[in-house]
């Protein structure tokens, strides 16, 4: 959420007033913000078709800032499901932010409250862009990268709700492969980290695919995260 990222930036330690690392992160995230903007439009259009009105979808995008979870809520409520089912689906999809938050934790700053706020800057793209290999993360880069994502998601949602279908089906433009292709590129650079990384990635991919037909969306990715525990064998 913007509050978390903004406050982290304002109190930015390190060289006083040096916002360059944040700006570098924001710049790196811009191309992906474009895809997020279009997905935001499609979420807004979907929400309007479900009769959510104007305010609710925009508030949802501001306070939840989570594409996959919000589409899941729309799917559950649209199919006549209740609030509990919708929340559960969203929680499963967002559970991956748990391990991602653990990974960046050593690099965040301040006391518990500030760390909790800085942790809100974790989204798929910002986390992946801020990964420096070997388990290291660039805090400022991640916070900077989250801001264009948030802005694009909220403005896109508003455009979809208010302006309607400006762009049409994002799938017609192939935008649904922007993130898998981007994650593949980041995976390729992670795999240069050695044989262990390659082995874990393979096991994780197979595990996720095998589980996918049998468990709710989101669970295969969390289960795949557990393969990283194989690292404990080499650490001993």
């Amino acid at each position: 959420m913007a509050e978390g990222a903004g406050r982290g930036e304002g109190a930015g330690a390190g060289p006083a007033g040096d916002h360059r690392p944040y700006r570098a992160g924001a710049r790196a995230a811009l191309p992906f913000a474009l895809a997020t903007f279009v997905l935001g439009i499609s979420f807004g259009v979907l929400a309007r078709s479900l009769g959510w009105g104007v305010v609710a979808p925009i508030v949802f995008s501001v306070i939840a800032f989570s594409g996959s979870a919000q589409f899941a809520v729309a799917a559950v409520l649209g199919a006549g499901g209740g609030a509990v089912a919708a929340t559960l689906a969203a929680v499963l999809l967002n559970a991956r932010f748990g391990p991602m938050g653990v990974a960046v934790a050593p690099y965040l700053k301040g006391g518990p409250l500030r760390r909790a706020l800085e942790g809100q800057a974790v989204v798929d793209a910002s986390w992946a862009l801020a990964s420096r290999g070997g388990g290291r993360f660039d805090r400022e880069f991640m916070i900077g990268a989250a801001l264009p994502q948030l802005a694009a998601w909220v403005v896109g949602t508003a455009a979809g709700v208010l302006g309607g279908d400006l762009i049409g089906d994002p799938e017609k433009l192939g935008l649904d492969v922007v993130f898998p292709a981007f994650f593949l590129a980041l995976l390729a650079s992670e795999l240069r980290g050695g044989r262990m990384a390659v082995g874990v990635a393979l096991v994780a991919a197979v595990l996720a695919l095998v589980l996918l037909p049998f468990v709710p969306p989101g669970v295969p990715v969390i289960a795949a995260c557990a393969t990283a525990l194989l690292g404990l064998r080499t650490a001993r």
Binding site: R96, P99, M100, V102, A103, A128, S131, G133, G134, G135, F183, L184, L186, L187, E190, L191, G193, M196, A197, V198, V200, A201, L202, V203, A204, A205, L207, A208, P220, V221, A224, C225, T227, A228, L229, L230, G231, L232, A235
Partner: peptide, 12 residues
């Protein structure tokens, strides 16, 4: 473990 989390998560 964290070092292997990125490849595992990204692959999934």
């Amino acid at each position: 473990v964290i070092k292997l989390l990125a490849p595992a998560l990204l692959a999934a």
